[in-house]
Design a binder for these strands. Structure first.
Length: 1133
RNA sequence: GGGCUUGUAGCUCAGGUGGUUAGAGCGCUACACUGAUAAUGUAGAGGUCCCUGGUUCGAGUCCAGGCAGGCCCA
């Protein structure tokens, strides 16, 4: 038996297991790479997962996408090495370890040594590796698990160091600061995690100030001033932290927010002013009464402030306006660097009209937003030099103003030292500042205000947003290049590239590398105490040499690596290394670790230990042709890969990237262990098999859309697609084995000798190859899957095979039968190839079932079927010469005519078994007539009718209807379309006839004359009097339901065949068994046998068919109006 | 709050450049078929195309503004 047959329905889970074992045993994955040696490389980067948690169903999704395109490129003949990788550093692992040990960050180095702690992290991070490896295999994700890159290994870290040094040498690495939550009382920065502790946000009552910033009258602001009006003009801005006002260096407005200019008086000094604020917030500061109040009568101290709106404008109009510093040099406040660029109005995307004035006071040293927009707009921060000449903000690390702050120097910003505040004369710094501003006429409103403010969870004291030292990569220096090169990347979906990623690049700030943690890649920078000398170490070798120097300088006692000891570049070991500066000073390592995203972004280099070795290997595998990860990686891995590639290689890191969406539960909720709606990938795969799972995920929604995961969808895919394909194969195998047919690549029935049906499905197959290749090429696997599915279920199974069944049942291996086998064989093997990237196991199963029997011949002939695995084959090319659009068109006509006729039979209760004489198809052009004519035989066979007759116009019996062609008419008549359309729908039969015959029709509508052309209307057959009629668009079919005696008898014959076939089947006979039949006497049956005996005997494989008055031991056959006993015996040869 | 994204039948999804009767599969109902049969065919029920406004002779489609879900930031 050449083709394996399966009596039971296929167990898809078992197929997965079996194929997997076979792959392993025969090293198919390895061969899929090695067999492409010397061919062009398709470079794929594996985004490293972290193995500190169990994998979920969403990982199956992400990895299916990766796998599809790697397998596809392999099928195209490219070599696709796939080095696996593990992400092993970072905060989630540290938090997990802390939780398990029951410690906090503060305990590290005290209750547990850094050494032990990091050892725990190292053990924890690979805890689920076995599960991950298991899932990888079972889902059929082909990636090299034997030689992965692991980010905690010394070589990997060393590569990161080398890259950091390259950046350092290019001047891209610098020490600066960012604004972070900081607790002066505890003297430490707080992580967002710490800030999210319960109880940290509390309601407090603070003094708040609406400050007046005096606008400088110049070209930029002139439009605000009335030409002849010298009254001072101020911008109002509100703050709940008045102590930051002396550090103000900018004001931010909303680009599209409407603002007004209001003439009024300062409530504290009573002097006339004009102020700018958001239109929406006028009511907050001015009363209805004041709108009417007299300016002339106003006296200082009056409750009601008169006011009038003088002008309105958009935020954008204010940008660039300069204003005077609130606390200037004249009153003893310090000058600062770049001061000439400060005190300007800029746009801030965070500005709202929720509260305040719709204008935000910017102090870059004390707010994260402030810092960011200031940096983006070139607004300097107010920094002053301390005693050692080091720059510092106006508040020191203990929470008090520095000495240079004039009258406020040395004051506590908040009560961090616990001093006594109970005295009647006691004033907080905020209050003192507000009082001074009232006097200066720079306060427009001062009030107490209750709001929530974060507090340190350990000291209960307010948190400050404060500049803390960090190391940065100067990504802004290459911003334009990042944007430029991003435009060359093919993003799937494109919107992620232009939108989410593009906008991120447009608003780029420098990459903050520093992390104050323990388990990660240490920053390889050593500095002297005063920070004047530093060195960036780029390799272990260089570090050893520097240690030797330090030993010579007696800064270190000995070189711990002198005798070739294994180097661990983690903390705490690197912290114990001290180096010597050129001037002989000791240098200490900057204590930070680097952002873990640097680790993963460095994988194109570090996975090969480049740049320390493997230069050629790196060049060959850079940049990647393709990467794929979740869309949440946009600012993570996608960015760090891009940033490093641009800065290090002036290149993209990847040419094509797919950002896939989330996997939600079937109700659209996020999956979580807590909610218990997480789907177990192992259970899913073992129950439904990896192929149906993968196919469902890919075919159901495009990978970049979120997927609502519902196992009902998998069972549907299983039944509808895999079940149909399996049935089609089984059908093929059953008959091919009976006939002893085995396909070959040579000596096939020539294409031009094939039947219409065969040439049609092969034409469809070529179109499918073309289409599916196109979709894979465009990184759109969903469309590829849907196209394959449609072909298999609708075209191949439900049309070609259904209509071809008789060809397989009958007689000897004639050329037509051979052609039927060969056609089906070609379709099945091609489908196996096309589906292989998405459903690798089932495709393998199908391919092997179809080709194992001819492997030896295949190998001898070097045929396409020589490879033992479908994944080692080369994907077929579409043969354009076999695509026949006209054939595809007429087959579609046949399908539609069949559908219409079935529907007519149904209406008149005439089962398909009852032959009918003819159908009528009205045709208006020769092409349709010719097209239908060529498929007449198919239609007749499918519908069990004798003839297709055509009806042309000349018959005059057709009743036609007409419909306006709105597209054409609309372009021509525009607004008049309505009346013209209405008129067309009222066209008479004569008018229709006129326009058909003469090619035009003139009609009068509302006094105007219109000339209509045939293209202006769509004419279709509506009815055929006296016939049963069905229509589908322009296609109409009429059925002749007249039954002659002969037709009736043939119907009876068919009924009899049907009953006998059932009997055969019920008796458990094999298809090829011959029988002898004896029937009870019944007039209608006897008449039918008289007329169609040969046909019946042939159909049921009967050597004899006789009637007898008495049937003993028979089975009763039920017909519509009578029952007849029958006996069936197997005929022995 | 910002950026991106999604919203079409009970469910999952299609619906180039605007064209009046919006489709498919599943599910449901009925009938038929029965040598591919846990398949198949035909018919039926099922829609405020998220809402509001605008452009247009005409909007599921284009524009503006909302609403709801999701992701990433703040």
């Amino acid at each position: 038996m050449s083709y394996p047959e399966y009596k039971q329905p296929l167990n898809y889970g078992q197929v997965g297991t079996d194929i997997l074992a076979w792959w392993k045993q025969n090293s198919i994955f390895e061969k899929s790479v090695s067999s492409r040696e010397g061919q062009p490389t398709f470079v794929f980067y594996e985004g490293p997962p972290s193995a500190n948690g169990a994998p979920g169903i969403h990982h199956v999704m992400a990895r299916t996408v990766k796998d599809i395109f790697c397998r596809y490129q392999t099928l195209l003949g490219k070599q696709v090495p796939r080095k696996g990788g593990w992400d092993t550093h970072g905060l989630p692992i540290e938090l997990q370890v802390e939780k398990e040990l029951g410690i906090t960050k503060e305990d590290i180095g005290k209750k547990i040594s850094i050494e032990e702690y990091n050892q725990r992290c190292r053990e924890t991070v690979m805890r689920f590796k076995a599960q991950w490896d298991d899932l990888t295999e079972k889902m059929g994700y082909w990636v090299d698990l034997d030689d992965p890159y692991i980010t905690f290994e010394p070589e990997y870290i060393e590569s990161c160091w080398a890259l950091l040094k390259k950046l350092y040498d290019k001047g891209f690495l610098y020490k600066g600061y960012t604004i972070q939550p900081y607790s002066p009382a505890a003297g430490t920065g707080l992580s967002s995690h710490e800030l999210n502790q319960p109880g940290t946000y509390r309601d407090v009552m603070d003094t708040t100030v609406v400050a007046q910033f005096k606008v400088v009258r110049d070209a930029a602001s002139e439009k605000l001033f009335a030409a002849d009006d010298a009254a001072p003009l101020h911008i109002l801005a509100w703050t709940t932290t008045p102590w930051t006002l002396p550090a103000n260096t900018g004001l931010a407005v909303g680009k599209n927010i409407p603002y007004v200019l209001v003439r009024t008086f300062n409530p504290y000094t009573g002097t006339p002013v004009r102020v700018v604020l958001a239109e929406a917030l006028v009511g907050k500061y001015f009363t209805e009464k004041g709108k009417e109040a007299s300016f002339e009568d106003f006296k200082s101290g009056d409750k009601v402030l008169p006011w009038r709106i003088e002008n309105t404008f958009k935020g954008a109009d204010l940008v660039g306006i300069k204003y005077e510093r609130l606390f200037g040099h004249a009153t003893g406040f310090p000058a600062f660097e770049n001061e000439e660029n400060a005190f300007r109005v800029i746009v801030g995307d965070f500005v709202t009209t929720e509260d305040g004035t719709g204008i935000v006071h910017i102090s870059p040293t004390f707010g994260a937003d402030d810092f960011r927009v200031a940096q983006q707009n070139g607004i300097p921060a107010l920094m002053v030099a301390d005693d050692e000449g080091k720059l510092s903000p106006i508040v020191d690390r203990t929470g008090r103003y520095v000495a240079q702050m004039g009258e406020f120097g040395g004051r506590w910003v908040k009560n961090y030292d616990g001093h006594d505040q109970s005295g009647a004369d006691y004033k907080t710094l905020d209050e003192s500042i507000a009082i001074r501003m009232k006097g200066d006429g720079t306060a427009f409103k001062v009030e107490k205000y209750e709001h929530t403010y974060p507090h340190c969870w350990r000291t209960d004291k307010p948190v400050l947003y404060y500049p803390l030292d960090s190391w940065f990569i100067k990504t802004t220096a290459v911003k334009d290049r990042l944007i430029e090169l991003n435009k060359t990347i093919n993003w799937q979906p494109a919107s992620t590239g232009t939108g989410r990623f593009g906008n991120w690049l447009e608003n780029l700030v420098d990459w903050n590398l520093s992390r104050s943690r323990y388990w990660g890649t240490p920053l390889p920078i050593w500095r002297t105490q005063d920070g004047t000398e530093e060195i960036c170490i780029g390799s272990i070798e260089q570090m050893k040499q520097e240690i030797d120097k330090a030993v010579t300088a007696e800064i270190m006692t000995h070189n711990p690596y002198a005798n070739g000891e294994k180097v661990d570049l983690h903390r705490p070991y690197v912290d114990d290394i001290f180096l010597v500066s050129p001037s002989g000073q000791p240098m200490y390592r900057e204590p930070d670790l680097i952002d873990v995203w640097f680790d993963s972004g460095a994988m194109p280099y570090a996975q090969w230990h480049y740049p320390l070795e493997n230069g050629e290997k790196f060049q060959k595998n850079f940049p990647a042709d393709f990467i794929a990860e979740g869309v949440d990686q946009t600012r993570g891995w996608f960015f760090t890969l891009h940033a490093l590639a641009v800065m290090l290689e002036d290149s993209v890191a990847y040419k094509n990237v797919m950002a896939n969406g989330l996997v939600l539960d079937k109700n659209g909720n996020k999956m979580s262990k807590r909610l218990g709606n997480a789907v177990d990938p192992f259970a899913t795969i073992s129950q439904y098999g990896p192929d149906a799972t993968r196919w469902y995920m890919i075919a159901n929604a495009q990978p970049w859309d979120n997927l609502k995961f519902d196992v009902a969808g998998i069972t549907e895919v299983q039944r509808r697609f895999f079940g149909t394909l399996f049935n089609t194969y089984s059908f093929y195998a059953l008959y091919a084995n009976l006939d002893g047919f085995q396909a070959t690549e040579t000596a096939r029935v020539p294409h031009h000798e094939l039947s219409e049906l065969d040439r049609w499905i092969l034409s469809k197959l070529q179109s499918l190859i073309k289409e599916v290749r196109g979709h894979y090429d465009a990184y759109d696997p969903t469309k590829a899957a849907r196209a394959i599915q449609d072909f298999v279920t609708d075209q191949l199974s439900n049309w070609h095979v259904r209509l071809s069944r008789r060809r397989f049942w009958k007689g000897d291996l004639t050329p037509d039968k051979r052609a039927a086998y060969e056609t089906l064989q070609e379709c099945l093997t091609t489908v196996a190839q096309l589906m292989a990237p998405i459903a690798p196991f089932f495709a393998e199963w199908l391919y092997q079932n179809m080709t194992d029997g001819l492997r030896a011949a295949g190998v001898a002939e070097s045929s396409p079927f020589a490879p033992e695995s479908v994944h080692l084959t080369l994907l077929v090319q579409a043969d354009e010469t076999r695509i026949d659009p006209a054939l595809e068109e007429r087959m579609e006509l046949a399908q539609r005519i069949s559908s219409l006729t079935h529907s007519l039979r149904k209406k008149s209760v005439l089962k398909v078994r009852q032959p009918l004489q003819r159908i009528l198809v009205p045709v208006f052009n020769d092409n349709t007539r010719a097209q239908v004519g060529k498929v007449e035989d198919l239609i007749c066979a499918e519908l069990n009718i004798k003839h297709v007759e055509f009806l042309d116009d000349t018959s005059g019996v057709l009743v036609k209807s007409v419909k306006p062609n709105f597209k054409r008419l609309g372009q021509q008549y525009g607004p008049k379309l309505k009346v013209v359309g209405a008129r067309i729908q009222q066209m008479t039969a004569e008018e229709i006839s006129t326009i058909e015959k003469t090619g035009q029709l003139t009609v009068d509508i509302e006094g105007e004359t219109y000339t209509l052309a045939p293209d202006d209307v769509e004419i279709r057959t509506q009815d055929l009097p006296g016939w049963l009629v069905a229509t589908d668009g322009a296609l109409t079919v009429a059925l002749d339901v007249t039954l002659t005696d002969e037709l009736r008898q043939e119907g009876v014959a068919r009924e009899l065949v049907n009953r006998l076939q059932n009997l055969r089947k019920d008796s458990g006979l094999e298809v090829q068994d011959k029988i002898r039949v004896t029937l009870g006497q019944q007039p209608e049956l006897q008449a039918a046998v008289q007329a169609f005996g040969d046909y019946i005997r042939e159909e049921v494989q009967a050597l004899s068919l006789d009637f007898a008055p008495e049937i003993s031991d028979g089975t009763v056959l039920e017909f519509d109006d009578y029952s007849v006993p029958a006996r069936l015996e197997v005929a022995t040869a």
